[in-house]
């Protein structure tokens, strides 16, 4: 019959098509991953929009000056960076270096002070070495961070703030290093 060859050809074509669609089902797997990757729709853990800090007052600059002293301690204590210009609302991190010049382990506690004094409440410290006592072995050097944000309500006439730390020795403190100690270097 004349149809027979045409029929068989059509069956072959349709079978190949069906086999191809079976393959296409598996092709959907990488295809799906690619679409998710390109469009970023499957990143359920990451936020879809990057978080932007809307509280930064970019119209205003404040000069920060950093000062460091040691009182009654044979410690060398100084900021890594002496001055810095910051926006109110901006998260700032600065670091201080401290070295025990003496020949025995000492525990010290830093006390902050501000100039002018009424700027104090507007310097919001989130992380500071002054929050806890610091133990330094003889000759040990530490680099210690301070993280702070200047409050947006900072009075307009305050354009320069000095942040000053003074280390005092803590008498009779435990000389064992604690786990909570800052980063050793």
């Amino acid at each position: 019959m004349i149809n027979k060859r045409a029929n068989n050809r059509m069956m072959t074509r349709l079978s190949i098509f069906a086999a191809g669609m079976f393959g296409f089902g598996f092709l959907l797997v990488p295809f799906y991953e690619k679409i998710c990757e390109v469009t970023g729709v499957n990143n359920l853990i990451k936020p879809a929009v990057a978080v932007v800090n809307t509280q930064v007052d970019v119209s205003r600059w404040v000069s920060m000056e950093f000062d460091a002293n040691a009182h009654g301690l044979n410690w060398e204590f100084k900021p890594v960076q002496r001055t810095m210009k910051v926006h109110p609302g901006e998260m700032v991190q600065v670091e201080y270096d401290v070295t025990n010049k003496g020949d025995r382990a000492t525990v010290g506690q830093a006390i902050p002070s501000y100039g002018p004094n009424h700027a104090g409440p507007f310097v919001r410290k989130l992380e500071c070495f002054c929050f806890k006592q610091q133990l330094l072995q003889a000759g040990e050097t530490k680099r210690m961070p301070v993280q702070f944000v200047l409050d947006g309500g900072l009075p307009a006439d305050l354009n320069t703030i000095t942040l000053s730390y003074t280390f005092f020795e803590v008498q009779g403190a435990s000389l064992k290093p604690t786990k909570a100690d800052g980063v050793n270097s």
Binding site: L14, F17, A18, M21, F22, G23, F24, G25, L28, V29
Partner: peptide, 25 residues
């Protein structure tokens, strides 16, 4: 039917291999 039945067969095949052959579709 020729277009989509193989896709279903693929989907359940993936389920089968996930169940028994250590794939992670």
């Amino acid at each position: 039917l020729v277009a989509v039945m193989p896709v279903l067969a693929g989907a359940v095949t993936m389920t089968l291999t996930d169940r028994h052959f250590g794939t992670h579709f």
